[in-house]
């Protein structure tokens, strides 16, 4: 998880204390991410990393923890260079 990832996510996590870093095991829903915001987070991440996150990754598991979401972003970023 890099700094940019945390910076994109933080505005959508109202219950993450300002002085605490985001950890891979953090439950995103407990930190205040809801389904209305999930789509905003998705777009913000895609814009930030120039990657397209595949539809089949848009599931509960991906949005469960910060680490899961980061993993999907990282995978999509690797693929972004490949011709689609």
């Amino acid at each position: 998880m890099d700094e940019q990832f945390t910076a994109v996510l933080r505005p959508h996590l109202p219950y993450l204390p300002e002085d605490r870093a985001l950890a891979p095991g953090d439950q995103l829903r407990e930190l205040g991410l809801n389904s209305m915001q999930a789509i905003e987070v998705l777009f913000a991440l895609e814009d930030a990393y120039g990657a397209a996150i595949p539809d089949d990754k848009l599931n509960d598991h991906t949005f469960e923890t910060a680490g899961n979401l980061w993993e999907v972003v990282a995978q999509s970023r690797e693929k972004a260079g490949e011709p689609r």
């Binding site: 397209a52 539809d55 089949d56 949005f63």
Partner: peptide, 20 residues
């Protein structure tokens, strides 16, 4: 407000045009 995220079917959702 529900916190359940939408879970599309893996193989069946409309992909982006270039993914088709």
């Amino acid at each position: 407000m529900t916190t359940t995220l939408v879970t599309p079917e893996p193989s069946a959702t409309g992909a982006r045009p270039q993914d088709r």
